[in-house]
Design a protein around this nucleic acid. Structure first.
Lengths: 94, 94
DNA sequence: CTTTAAATATCGATTATCCGATACAATTAC
DNA sequence: GTAATTGTATCGGATAATCGATATTTAAAG
């Protein structure tokens, strides 16, 4: 299950181009806790280094073409891994 | 995103009591690759040590009461983290 | 302009996830 | 009942995810 943080970050940036701080805020909204700078910036650096994210002058990240491809692949494995996600959801609703 | 493998294993065992080998097979079905023994058994040991799983004479794992509580908590954070899962799904269907 | 505050970045340490190799145990096949 | 296979387990090493501390850069306030 390694690579899930990267996957989620790709997804967030896909929805809207964001700065590191905005990504951290969004992760806080979702996970209940703001990731520390030591979590977020190294991942962003790695993703940029891997050619999946690009960054503009105002430090705003966006997906590259490779990033979009990678996100697509991650989405496929995600839904295959959690193939019974509806069952998981209804289980929770009890 | 640490703890996702444990979460998935709790979910699988919740659906059906299983041995380590069965869990490995199910993970292969979902993720496309069978986890190596060096992945699966340490996690199982940890989960057992944390009182989330119990194991019977025939090495079949089942959830403890604490394991069920833990699974429930994980389910909640999972669906909060992936709150836009339907959007993710439809994005993939293009 | 300087001070303050916020965002970006790096560092060292810890835990989770992962592999392949090896070892040991239990089951199945002859 | 031994031999081969399968399942269980541990080990060492790698990478990802995480923190908190610190440092640096950038932006805002005064």
């Amino acid at each position: 299950m390694k690579g899930f943080l990267s996957f989620l970050i790709l997804w967030l940036v896909h929805k809207r181009n964001m700065t590191g701080a905005e990504i951290a805020l969004e992760l806080e909204k979702r996970k209940g806790r703001r990731p520390s700078p030591g979590t977020i910036y190294p991942v962003l650096k790695h993703l940029k280094g891997a050619g999946l994210l690009s960054i503009d002058e105002s430090k705003c990240y966006s997906l590259t073409k490779r990033g979009r491809k990678e996100l697509e692949a991650h989405l496929n494995t995600f839904f295959q891994t959690f193939c019974d996600i509806d069952e998981m959801r209804s289980c929770r609703k009890v």
